[in-house]
Nucleic acid binder design. Structure first.
Length: 852
DNA sequence: CAGTGAGCGAGCTTCCGCTTGACTT
């Protein structure tokens, strides 16, 4: 019989800790939350102080009964869930489920999974912090109220077939994208010219090329032409040389959001892919926990990084330090993401795992390395015929430091290779090799990627490490947002080249405005967003979460009662819901485009039950109106009358093939052609333009594919043996059956198949839910809560202070928070200046690109 | 899997944050 049972949240963590503790301890995992509000109903009694009804979800029943058994056999139970609001609440739920009095529970916490940290934690157990639990309950209940009131309102007012949803996090995420998209739509581009030049110089028998550019933009073609003409007659000389030493310091080790950003930029991973790969690295013990908002490293980790750096690169490369978190609502329950063993600079595994591990290793190890020492040189070049100066920038690395292993990239572009400038003297003459005036265009604001949206949400304090990836997928699943696929458009630009005193003019083309991989809001996303903003200003505000988080903090500090906080939010919110319910008409996003020249009826676009559509005529007209679905790339806001009228040409008969009609149309799953009862997807082809010949090729391809797919076809029994993405299978009566591994699918007879079908297990049904059981226990729980609240409040404040090893009383706690706030501000300033710097380099890059 | 779109009403959906499997045919 084990003396001690310790419960943590993650099974991988449990395994590691068990190794540290020896045989007196059994360490088990509860797999996250073990009790929650039921999925299928509100379960918050708004009449009775917002009393929640919790239950154990079906997929957690097994874990709970296992834990109950272990708990019964143990003498002591240690609740070691994460040290944050959610972790405290999980411990509280565990108490309820395992029949432990919350007042007598042994609660322990640690921020890092190291032996000393855990042994220390066991020495200093505390009790449950009911204030923290209440803060979590308030968070949970507020989210439930918002989500489960707003979503049904959308079902009612926007009668779409697909299920819609709204929530504190997802709706603001969509809003950010919608507003960006509207900025892009409003943006009008304007052309200008940039001057780039290349000089030749030689020094110590070496030839150098010096790139220099004009700092200002030229307004138009005439100015650009005039500038080059002046230069064609000019001589050039060095006006000034400025050399200044600078430093670059490494970035902090990864948190969830920075990992997602870097993996997106450097490896092209979606946030979901990053998390999936990180999870498997974590489970195999190669990295620390991957859902964290902390940049903290344990002492053990810092020491081992130092050792690894000194061994591989030498002492001068080591610079141990601890980073401070900038995140707004960081709870810092874990370490930063780092390799478990710094001495392993690579690991075995899939190629994704190796790549991501390498990124994590480099970032973590470089965070403990020295600053890079650089020397920046700025050379101004005089033009004899003009007042303007040209500027050449050079950068030389004097000591590489952390750059030896890791180069941080920015959102815009990876920075240009540094130029090496030869030694130059003031007054020295320079030979112009070539000068270019390139037409450029002001650029529309950039769309967000999944990773940059996560970054923005984190800055706003919206969402948590565990929800960034799910939030990105939910806004796409609901049809609010899609990942762009269009490659952009071509555009022409002028290029003037001055060489050997002659000016050459060229028209070049470039691609612009690609939205590939970027998040683009859909019409549905926009209509839903506009509706929510009209009626629910407060919840949709960017700082709503930050403000309500302050209230949750007050609850955690024992300064506010959670029911009151919810009440003061819910009263006006509920009024807004009622108002919207009563006042709002059906939301369709309707826009009139004009009049159909043929029928003289109105043509308009709107959101129909199946998505965006165009319509000719009104429903109450004598004649039934005509409808047509919008193509995927068309939008309510931008489609023209002509484009809309085109849509009514579908479905379109394009000819005959083997005596049967061939019809092109746009269906639910994209454009297709129909031929003798079979459908062939059109892919990239436009159903309005596709020719018969092209269609026949596609039909033949499809027939070939089908032939490859079929292994057997037993017509009498209507059984098919087919090749699918998971291997061969049997298709019968609209159901699919697995083929046992012992049998060769090629040798199967109709009889064999029927036998497999008969022996196949029944299909599992998903749903099972108990609705009554949970009620009693929670009522008791809430009653108890209210009585013990005051006492608990006092207790915890003093305890917290004690834990921090400062003097008691609230004032100290407040001071520390104030300090935090100021450092935050400073941090914010830093980032903005950095951003500005990043912008500079990118514009440079853009011009550099075109000159090549 | 693929020509839907009014209005009615049945019956369905939905939040955010903690955590992993199960496993498709």
């Amino acid at each position: 019989m084990p003396k001690n049972l310790m419960i943590v949240e993650s099974p991988a963590k449990a395994k590691t800790i068990e190794k540290f503790l020896g045989k007196d301890f059994v360490v088990e995992s509860c797999y996250g939350c073990i009790r929650d509000l039921p999925r299928e109903k509100l379960a918050v009694d708004v009449e009775k102080k917002y009393a929640p009804t919790y239950e154990v979800p079906t997929d957690k029943k097994k874990v709970v009964s296992q834990l109950k058994k272990l708990a019964k056999d143990s003498q002591k139970i240690w609740l070691a869930t994460d040290e944050d609001r959610e972790g405290e609440a999980i411990s509280w739920h565990l108490c309820h489920v395992l029949g432990i009095e919350p007042e007598s529970a042994k609660r322990i916490v640690f921020h890092e999974i190291t032996k000393p940290a855990i042994l220390e934690a066991i020495k200093t157990p505390r009790f449950l912090n009911q204030n923290l639990v209440n803060a979590q309950q308030a968070r949970r209940i507020l989210d439930r109220l918002v989500g489960f009131q707003l979503s049904p309102l959308l079902w009612k007012k926007i009668r779409l077939k697909s299920s819609l949803s709204a929530g504190r996090v997802q709706s603001v995420a969509v809003r950010i994208l919608v507003e960006k998209e509207r900025n892009i739509l409003e943006f009008t581009t304007s052309p200008f010219f940039r001057i780039n030049s290349l000089f030749k110089a030689s020094s110590n028998n070496r030839n150098y090329k010096i790139k220099a550019e004009l700092g200002r933009k030229l307004e138009n073609y005439d100015e650009a032409r005039a500038f080059l003409e002046k230069c064609s007659q000019a001589s050039f000389s060095v006006a000034s040389v400025q050399v200044k030493p600078t430093q670059k310091s490494p970035s902090a080790p990864f948190t969830t959001s920075t990992l997602q950003q870097e993996a997106s930029r450097k490896l092209g991973f979606s946030v979901a892919r990053t998390m999936r790969v990180a999870q498997s690295l974590y489970e195999s013990g190669k990295i620390t926990y991957m859902r964290t908002d902390s940049v903290n490293l344990s002492k053990v980790a810092i020491a081992s990084a130092k050792k690894a750096i000194e061994k591989s690169y030498g002492k001068q490369y080591s610079n141990s330090k601890q980073y401070r978190s900038k995140a707004r609502n960081a709870q810092e329950a874990h370490e930063a993401i780092r390799p478990t063993y710094f001495e392993n600079n690579q690991v075995e595994g899939t190629s994704d795992e190796q790549k991501l591990y390498s990124l994590i290793w480099k970032r973590a190890i470089s965070s403990q390395m020295s600053n890079a020492q650089l020397e920046k040189t700025i050379v101004k070049i005089k033009i004899s015929t003009l007042k303007d100066l040209l500027t050449a920038n050079g950068e030389v690395i004097k000591f590489d430091g952390f750059l030896k292993v890791y180069e941080v990239s920015t959102d815009e572009e990876i920075s240009e290779d540094s130029e090496i400038l030869p030694p130059l003297e003031v007054g020295q003459e320079l030979d112009l090799d070539e000068m270019k005036a390139t037409q450029r265009f002001t650029r529309a604001p950039a769309r967000y990627t999944e990773a940059s949206l996560v970054k923005k949400l984190e800055e706003l304090g919206i969402g948590r490490p565990s929800t960034y990836a799910p939030t990105m997928s939910v806004i796409q699943k609901r049809g609010y947002v899609t990942k762009g696929e269009t490659p952009g458009k071509e555009r022409e630009f002028k290029l003037l080249t001055l060489k050997a005193q002659k000016i050459l003019e060229q028209i070049c083309t470039e691609n612009f405005g690609s939205d590939r991989g970027k998040l683009v809001p859909t019409d549905i996303g926009m209509v839903v967003n506009d509706f929510l903003i009209e009626y629910f200003q407060q919840v949709l505000q960017y700082d709503f979460t930050a403000r309500i988080e302050k209230e949750f903090d007050d609850i955690a500090q024992g300064e506010k009662i959670w029911n009151d906080v919810i009440h003061s939010f819910y009263q006006p919110f509920n009024e807004d819901v009622e108002l919207a319910l009563k006042e709002a008409k059906q939301v369709t996003g309707e826009r009139k485009l004009g009049v159909d020249p043929k029928s003289k009826k109105d043509v308009f676009v709107k959101i129909g039950r199946y998505g965006p559509m165009a319509q000719i005529g009104h429903v109450d007209d004598e004649e039934k109106p005509k409808f047509a679905k919008l193509r995927p790339k068309q939008h309510l806001a931008t489609i023209t009358l002509e484009e809309a009228l085109e849509l009514f040409k579908l479905p379109r008969k394009i000819g005959e093939h083997e005596g049967e009609e061939v019809i092109a149309a746009e269906g639910r799953y994209g454009p297709y052609i129909k031929h003798s009862g079979k459908f062939v997807s059109l892919g990239e082809y436009d159903p309005l333009k596709v020719t018969l010949d092209e269609a026949i090729v596609l039909i033949k391809q499809k027939e070939e594919m089908d032939a490859k797919k079929t292994i057997h076809e037993f017509e009498e029994e209507d059984i098919k043996v087919l090749n699918g993405p998971y291997g061969p299978y049997i298709s019968y009566n609209k159901r699919n059956y697995k083929i046992p591994k012992s049998q060769d699918p090629k040798k199967l007879t109709a009889k064999d198949c029927l036998k497999i079908i008969e022996e196949a297990p029944e299909k599992k049904t998903k749903k099972a839910g108990k609705k009554t059981a949970a009620k009693k226990t929670t009522k008791k729980a809430t009653a108890k809560k209210t009585t013990t609240k005051k006492a608990a409040a006092k207790k915890t404040t003093t305890k917290k202070a004690a834990a921090k090893k400062t003097t008691t009383k609230k004032t100290t706690a407040k001071k520390t928070t104030a300090k935090k706030a100021t450092t935050k501000k400073a941090a914010a300033k830093k980032t903005t200046t950095k951003k500005a710097a990043a912008k500079k380099t990118t514009t440079k890059k853009a011009t550099a690109k075109t000159t090549k």
